[in-house]
Simulated scan of single mutants.
Amino acid sequence: MIFSSIKNGDTFESYPKAIQTALDYLKSHDFASMEPGVYEIQGRDIYAQVFDAVTVEADSKHAESHEKYLDVQYLVSGKERLGFTKNTGNYKVKEHIKERDLIFYESVEDEGYIESRPGCFCVFFPSDIHRPEVISGESMKLRKVVVKVSVSLL
């Protein structure tokens, strides 16, 4: 997992090229004015999902992970907490939606949280279980972008 901000002036040169591509896309677009939807960056190898969501209590949001893609989650507006823990392979799967590369878990252990604000991004690898869109203070509407990067590019 990587947590940082595109506002910190870092060039991210030490990151894998595919993640640099995702971050360059995030730095160069005005997502507040874009319509929600899917935007291809490099076909289906790297693409962005722009959407609006509402934060909820952690117990009403299932922890999730992915196998074929990593997530670069970027917060455009609002604030949220992001849960995270290591994928030990020992957690009971609640639902596996293969066509969406999405695995939901019944419960996880040793979950930590980070606070995300506009400009923050978090890279979740397949080894990271994560729980996005958790209330930070009070429930609120968010604008988010999730750039999906195929792990085959790493």
Rank of each mutant, 00 (worst) to 15 (best):
L102Q: 05
L102R: 05
L102W: 03
I103M: 06
I103S: 08
I103G: 03
I103T: 00
F104V: 15
F104E: 04
Y105D: 01
Y105W: 05
Y105K: 03
E106T: 08
S107R: 13
V108K: 03
V108P: 05
V108C: 00
E109P: 07
E109G: 03
E109S: 11
E109Q: 10
D110Q: 12
D110G: 07
D110C: 11
D110Y: 05
D110R: 12
D110M: 10
E111M: 01
E111H: 00
E111L: 01
E111T: 05
G112L: 10
G112N: 12
G112M: 12
G112P: 10
G112D: 11
G112C: 12
Y113M: 02
Y113R: 02
Y113N: 03
Y113F: 05
Y113Q: 06
Y113A: 00
I114M: 06
I114T: 05
I114A: 08
I114K: 05
E115D: 13
R117K: 15
R117I: 11
R117Y: 09
P118Y: 06
P118R: 02
G119R: 01
G119T: 09
G119I: 08
C120M: 08
C120Y: 03
C120L: 06
C120Q: 00
F121G: 06
F121E: 01
F121C: 01
C122T: 01
C122M: 08
V123G: 06
V123M: 05
V123W: 05
V123Y: 04
V123N: 02
V123E: 00
V123I: 13
F124M: 13
F124E: 03
F125C: 08
F125N: 07
F125P: 03
F125E: 07
F125D: 04
P126G: 01
P126V: 03
P126W: 02
S127P: 10
S127F: 12
S127C: 15
D128R: 00
D128P: 02
I129M: 04
H130T: 09
H130A: 09
R131S: 09
R131G: 03
P132A: 15
P132N: 13
E133N: 08
E133K: 05
E133G: 07
V134D: 07
V134P: 01
V134Y: 08
I135D: 00
S136M: 13
G137V: 14
G137P: 07
G137H: 10
G137Y: 13
G137T: 11
G137E: 11
E138W: 07
E138R: 14
E138F: 14
S139W: 09
S139R: 13
M140P: 06
M140W: 12
M140R: 10
M140I: 09
M140L: 14
K141N: 15
K141I: 09
L142G: 10
L142M: 13
L142K: 15
L142Q: 09
L142D: 08
L142E: 14
L142I: 15
